[in-house]
Amino acid sequence: MSALGRLRGAAFALLAAASVALAAGLPGESIYQLEAQLTTQHGLHAGLDLERGHPTLIAMFYGSCPAACPMLIDAMQAYEGDLDPAARARLRVLLVSFDAARDTPAQLERLARLHRADPARWTFASAGERDTRRIAALLGVSYRKLPDGDYEHSLLITLLDGEGRILASTTRLVGDADFAAKLSAATRPGTQ
């Protein structure tokens, strides 16, 4: 093997070691295995795993959505509202927009305020087109951009444990007792 070949081999070995180190301890089935880049309502860049260590509700939406998405956000607030305050304090919420072009950080912040989302625990974010597609694929959310700029999409709320494993999901905006029970179990003390 040439010197160049040896150098390339060493570089690949280093990269492999680095990627293993980054994912240290992360279970194989965790959705945080996906390396995606989010931009939050504060204009900060973060990975999909920004809430690692906390049970998290995650869903996809877009800001210009006339009815379904406000209902989705209300539903998430209702599910977390049924938790006792200590449990709720352990929970994080991540909303990822389909529509990075229109859902700028300023717009996401406006939406957060509109819904009076708890700024300590709720993150509204967008991602590039490719990462949005990959996050949706990971969660099982279907969406299609329509010619007028709106999105046709499914509604899904997913519950993750502290390591990003999917514990439960629901398409029901209200009254999913099984989902509520799993949410309660996930936010008990010491279960992160």
Binding site: F12, L15, A16, S19, A23, L26, G28, E29, S30, I31, Q33, L34, L138
Partner: peptide, 15 residues
Amino acid sequence: TAHPRWRRGAVPAAL
């Protein structure tokens, strides 16, 4: 060969 993360045995179950 060029992207070890995608080798069988290395790729995570989520992907």
